[in-house]
Design a protein around this nucleic acid. Structure first.
Lengths: 198, 198
DNA sequence: GTCTATAGTAGGATAGAC
DNA sequence: GTCTATCCTACTATAGAC
């Protein structure tokens, strides 16, 4: 019936929203299923009607967070330079670092991925590649120019993810702010000159 | 007595070496005290003769890894440009990413710090600041020039830490290699022009 | 200082009622 | 689909013998 189908869908989304926030802010191991379900207004037993395991939820939550963030921050398809710059500044903001809304799993969970199973890592990697593509200038012609644009996009994304991750790790708030500022300047500047690729 | 003192010191260092590697490669939560002690050739009970808690060990292991790495990779005091460049290339190498020797806790544990207690985070932050200082060109005079050098050093360090963390997270080996290459090029290039600091 | 043994706790996953 | 109750495992930390 449409009613129970709809109900199930709502429950599922409530779990996903809650889990995406909790996992990002506290990490996979520091969040229990109980915690997620209580915050979502249900009990532990109901969990397995929606997901097959905690790991399964992890992968789905990462994807959900990415899609939600992408919708609100970056328009579909080709973005203008101005839109890209606004996005970079918002990403490297203190509000994002402090965990506002649903934080980006790329930055918040980056060093957690190495220990996860294939499904989770592959989801994270796909989200990463999506971000790289969206930040890429597709103006150059020829494969050499495109390789340079790809490299510039990778540098930007690393500076965004790394900047947020480092700022969050630091004990010292003043230094964290300085890191964010430096990364904004770095990620917004003209792509660094391609030096050696070996 | 000197003998037992020495013995204790050896045990302690064995635990620290083992723990530094395991924590970096597998993360704090995915390593048990049992695992550390077995790999160090002892049993769980002996642990508490050396450290007061698992968290205590974590902080000490981070410091130990940093000191060990600093000794082998970067000379004390002022480094030459060439030494700095060799260090950056080694840091962003695939060998380091794959966990050779004792990997750098800054990159391997960056998004784990946000959930740790004050002692651990403050240790990590101190190690971070040490790396920033070592990568800094102290050639400029005047506070404006020094602020720019600080910013350039922060960008480099973020690109190193972020690059290794991202490369490790990625599922796709070819892409991971590309990320490392891009970050080497970025971190080795002339400091980006200072644009806006707001 | 290191061992074995154990207390105490937390959390993932399942079973069965409604 | 959601609930309560339970099983089972893993792990931190401590106690006490040597």
């Amino acid at each position: 019936m449409a009613w129970s189908e709809d109900h199930k869908q709502r429950s599922r989304e409530k779990i996903l929203t809650t889990a995406a926030g909790l996992f990002a802010r506290q990490g996979f191991d520091n969040v229990s299923i109980d915690q997620v379900m209580q915050a979502a207004g249900m009990t532990r037993g109901a969990f397995y009607a929606h997901f097959s395991s905690k790991t399964d939820l992890y992968a789905e939550a990462i994807l959900y967070a990415a899609n939600t963030a992408a919708e609100s921050y970056l328009p579909q398809g080709q973005a203008t330079d101005q839109q890209r710059e606004a996005f970079i500044a918002a990403y490297l903001s203190e509000a994002h670092c402090q965990g506002a809304d649903i934080p980006c799993p790329l930055a918040f969970l980056v060093s957690d991925m190495a220990h996860q199973d294939e499904g989770v890592r592959s989801t994270w990697s796909q989200v990463f590649q999506g971000l790289v593509k969206r930040l890429q200038n597709n103006t150059g012609e020829g494969s050499a120019a495109q390789a340079e644009e790809q490299q510039a996009a990778l540098q930007k994304v690393v500076m965004m993810i790394g900047g947020v991750a480092v700022a969050r790790a630091l004990n010292d708030n003043a230094l964290a702010t300085e890191v964010l500022e430096a990364c904004r300047a770095g990620a917004l500047s003209t792509p660094p000159i391609h030096l050696s690729e070996e």
